[in-house]
Design a protein around this nucleic acid. Structure first.
Lengths: 111, 111
DNA sequence: TTCAATATTCGACATGTTTCGAATATTACA
DNA sequence: TGTAATATTCGAAACATGTCGAATATTGAA
């Protein structure tokens, strides 16, 4: 490990920070599980839920959910698009791929 | 995503928190890259460096390195074993496997 | 235009994290 | 035993984060 250059340390640490809060991780999980399969394999995670539904039953204030989503966005883990009264969120596949690459065992020679 | 039950949310968030500090992530990187290949594939990451060498050139106090290692250990990312004057550290493969599982695309049917 | 639904921003507060240097602990060896 | 090497714990300070409710913003529809 790993396939990733270590000079994105800061960016990676930032991504992990975004996932380090249980509520944020739960929100990310919800977003991850509402993926829609399409023919276009490059966009596994399709549109999703809005800020309100993502925070449902989480027992934190709406403004806090909004804040957490902003953090996930800042780290590059999700995208947010305003659509009418709602803001739709989706997982950013590119970032997910980067994380997976980081955790893959090094393939260059020895394990 | 993902293959992991969402009720280890807390444990996972804790793991990500441990990796969310740039110095800690760098220490973990160093530990990850000093793996030794053996016949026993279950222990990819072998013994490693001690607290002192892991913190080399990091420009933080020795006590801070010690603290960061304790955090990595607390999250289950590394193991620490006292060996004489030194404390040897190694990556905990089981936790690494758990993280990889979390980030794998869901294998049940559709992508 | 006014209202309701949804989302974001703001200020404040409590709590948690990072960091240091000093003090203490552990160990091997002269 | 005493000393040097290495590591850990402690207390304090600075800084960052999570949270809330109120205020504000944005939008669609009556």
């Amino acid at each position: 490990m790993s396939n990733i250059e270590h000079n994105n340390n800061e960016a990676l640490a930032d991504i992990f920070k975004a996932l380090s809060n249980p509520y944020r991780l739960e929100i990310f999980n919800r977003l991850s599980s509402c993926n829609v399969s399409t023919d276009d394999s490059s966009s596994e995670h399709q549109i999703c839920e809005c800020v309100g539904s993502l925070g449902k039953d989480l027992d934190i204030a709406h403004s806090t959910v909004s804040h957490h989503l902003k953090e996930l966005k800042r780290a590059g883990l999700i995208r947010m698009v305003r659509n009418g009264k709602r803001t739709e969120c989706q997982v950013n596949e590119a970032t997910l791929a980067m994380i997976r690459a980081y955790f893959q065992p090094c393939c260059c020679g020895k394990q």
